[in-house]
Design a protein around this nucleic acid. Structure first.
Lengths: 158, 158
DNA sequence: AAAATATACTTCACACATAAAACATTTAAG
DNA sequence: CTTAAATGTTTTATGTGTGAAGTATATTTT
């Protein structure tokens, strides 16, 4: 009775790691929820739209649908819908790729770039306020640890 | 030209905090995606279902819909759908609340409790493997920092 | 060059997620 | 006691998110 599961009882750190994950999940959900709310209220937009524009802004020449899907790590079908709506709003355009009629290039419009600049500045300021509990140094150290985690996660999936 | 936004240029730590957030988001999305995949493949289930059962298991007497909504911090309407599907699968039951015909109490079934126990053990082991890059001590320290963040976030929203 | 494969994207069926409106019931006010 | 306000839940409209199937076009094999 009350015997812990053998798999996890082997590793006394298991509970500590679980606690860490639950904390991490709570913190990131909480921040994400606030960002979504801010984007909705201030810019009538959403996080996926913001993320997609952020990705596109890093590539002056635009990205193909499948590249967007890879960069944002969401499914192909999902990208279709987000691009549809952003295109309707005139933030981005679909451009045919010469020499390959299957593919579509997606590029920011001038209006999209202007609008994104405003949103990105606000976004940085929101984050700055929410993470005010971390000094610059604290933040760098946490980032470093999370980079190690990321490296370790990539290893496993390879 | 090239003048940084005045709001954020005031605080030199702003960029460090933004980097931290992007890392945190990447890490938690990556872990969440793996958990979702595991739940789907191993148990034909989802993270929202798992979360709801986890919440319910902490309350032997069950929870009302609105309490579930509060504990899980998702909208009322959302809870309705997840409860519908879990009830269809016999994991939980809706029980009328005597004296208040508006409310419904939701409780785990015996089968639900058995099934959740299996899933929760697997879940802990998945997390243990994914966070293997952190020693028990590292994990505790990170948890501590995230708790500080959480406290700071709660403050602002109050 | 015809047939098999691979690639790029969209569509589909489903499960979440939200805010807002609708509905039912209870409680409070006058 | 009857209306008004508050509470508890569901419904609706919309926007993600997924995996799998479908369509169109390119590429490779034979």
């Amino acid at each position: 009775m009350n015997k812990p599961n053998p798999d996890t009882s082997n590793d006394p750190a298991s509970k500590d790691r679980l606690r860490l994950w639950l904390r991490m999940l709570k913190a990131s959900r909480s921040i994400e929820a606030q960002l979504r709310e801010n984007l909705r209220v201030e810019f009538a937009s959403t996080l996926p739209r913001f993320d997609l524009m952020a990705a596109l802004c890093r590539y002056e020449d635009g990205l193909k649908m499948s590249q967007l899907s890879g960069v944002l790590k969401v499914s192909n079908g999902n990208i279709t819908g987000i691009v549809d709506r952003l295109a309707e709003d005139g933030m981005i355009v679909r451009v045919p790729v010469p020499g390959d009629r299957r593919a579509t290039l997606v590029r920011m419009t001038t209006r999209g770039r202007e609008e994104f600049k405003i949103q990105a500045d606000a976004h940085e300021e929101w984050i700055n306020e929410m993470l005010i509990a971390f000094s610059g140094e604290d933040a760098c150290e946490m980032t470093h640890r999370l980079e190690q985690l990321d490296a370790s996660l990539q290893e496993k999936s390879t």
